[in-house]
């Protein structure tokens, strides 16, 4: 049986890991390659790196981090941030990433998703979807959560899968960094309309939150950052807890 995945997320700027609350107020959390190694040893199932500033200057620093990480870790990792054209994705894959997250670039030009899926295969194209509650629906937010596109997150998820994405990294801006639990309602809603794996992100604060997002939110993987970076709990603790609650995990 396929196991539920626990994925630490490393938000980076200028080659350093940082962590914010609802996409602002960032704190320094250390060296990305060192953290990646630590999480690999602790039993993380995958890693996600997001270049949250994603400027041209940052590109070379990011590629260097990817290359060094690829040499050090023994598990797969996804890299996202600033992917606007097929060549950006190629660079990141060549540097050693296993999967690439596409966010704003795909919303602005949806063909980017199909171009990447056709060239590199659906399995390495991850839709990075940042959603925020607006009125009675969830809207897709881009540009690091600053711009409301007015597009329904549910509709966009469905379209992106048709265009060829193989997985969705679904972040709830409303719950991000709040440590009050993942957004179960949002995750469940997206999971019910697509048949690709969903990585739920935003809001992990305690062990029960992981159980709830798997059992109630139908997520395939759960992502967390500050919880792990600041040592509030370890990956092992999360996995032991899940196993004790009859959720299949890799130990």
């Amino acid at each position: 049986m396929i196991t539920k995945r626990i994925i630490p997320c490393l938000d980076m700027t200028q080659g350093k890991v940082v962590k914010g609350v609802q996409f602002i107020n960032f704190r320094d959390a250390g060296d990305p390659v060192e953290l990646a190694k630590k999480y690999d040893e602790q039993g993380a199932d995958e890693l996600v790196f997001l270049d949250i500033t994603a400027t041209v200057d940052n590109r070379d620093i990011l590629l260097d981090v990817i290359k060094r990480t690829a040499k050090e870790v023994t598990i797969p990792f996804t890299v996202g941030g600033g992917i606007r054209k097929k060549e950006d994705m190629q660079q990141v894959l060549r540097a050693g990433a296993d999967k690439v997250g596409v966010n704003s670039g795909g919303v602005k030009r949806p063909e980017l998703l199909s171009e990447c899926a056709e060239t590199f295969g659906s399995q390495c194209v991850v839709l990075s979807l940042d959603a925020k509650r607006v009125g009675n629906q969830w809207n897709v937010m881009i540009n690091g959560g600053r711009t409301d596109t007015g597009i329904s997150a549910i509709v966009w998820a469905k379209n992106a899968v048709k265009l060829g994405v193989g997985e969705i990294l679904l972040t709830s801006i409303d719950t991000d960094g709040m440590k009050q639990g993942f957004n179960i309602e949002l995750t469940k809603a997206v999971a019910s309309v697509v048949n690709v794996p969903i990585i739920a992100s935003g809001g992990a604060g305690k062990l029960e939150d992981f159980k709830d997002i798997f059992q109630q939110g139908n997520a395939d993987a759960a992502l967390a950052a500050s919880l792990f970076h600041f040592g509030e709990c370890t990956i092992k603790e999360v996995k032991n807890y899940l196993r004790d609650n009859d959720i299949s995990v890799r130990l």
Partner: peptide
């Protein structure tokens, strides 16, 4: 099924004599 299959899954050993599986426990992920 959700396709692609992405993630960790167990391998059930069929050929117990296989030299490929030295020190690999049954149902390893």
């Amino acid at each position: 099924l959700k396709v692609p299959q992405i993630g960790w899954n167990q391998m059930q050993i069929i050929d117990v004599q296989s030299p490929l599986l030295t020190d690999i426990p049954d149902t390893s992920d």
